[in-house]
Computed example of a mutant assay.
Amino acid sequence: LALGATGAKAAKMSQSAVRYQATPKDGKQCSGCNLFVAPNSCKSVDGDIAATGWCALWVKKAA
């Protein structure tokens, strides 16, 4: 999958496509993800995102 965003905001993925859930999984949750934007957004997933949620794109927040 190649994304050719030229200055424009890249399209976000749907919550169902990334298996988003509003509860943590295996100790991982959105508030600890590098893609989470407080208070309830994500750089890569569309819609309202719970800080306690989780999805398949989860990446540990940089220290």
Rank of each mutant, 00 (worst) to 15 (best):
G27S: 08
V59E: 15
V59P: 00
T6D: 02
D48W: 06
K9R: 15
L57M: 10
G32V: 09
A56S: 14
L1Q: 12
G27Y: 03
I49P: 01
A51P: 15
R19M: 15
W54Y: 13
W58T: 02
V37H: 13
V45C: 06
S44K: 10
A56K: 13
K60M: 12
C55Q: 08
Y20K: 05
G7C: 05
S16M: 08
F36L: 03
A11H: 11
K9Y: 14
Y20G: 12
G47M: 10
P24L: 08
C30M: 02
K28A: 00
K25P: 03
N40M: 09
G27N: 04
V18G: 06
W54G: 03
N34G: 12
A5I: 13
L1I: 15
W58V: 00
K61P: 03
L3W: 06
K9S: 06
M13W: 04
D46E: 15
Y20V: 02
K25R: 12
A56W: 07
A50H: 10
A63C: 04
L3V: 12
K28G: 01
A22W: 02
C55G: 05
A56R: 13
A11Q: 12
K25L: 15
Q21L: 01
A5G: 13
S44P: 00
G4T: 13
N34D: 15
W58P: 00
G27R: 06
Q15D: 05
V18I: 13
A10E: 07
A10M: 04
M13V: 04
C30S: 08
A10K: 03
D48P: 06
N34P: 01
A56E: 04
K61D: 07
G53I: 11
A62H: 14
W58E: 00
Q15Y: 01
A56P: 01
K9C: 09
N40C: 08
L35D: 06
A2S: 11
D26R: 08
P39S: 13
A8E: 04
L3G: 05
G7E: 03
P39N: 12
L1P: 06
N40F: 09
A22E: 10
V59N: 13
W58Q: 03
A63L: 11
A38L: 11
G53C: 08
G53Y: 03
T23S: 09
G7R: 05
A17P: 03
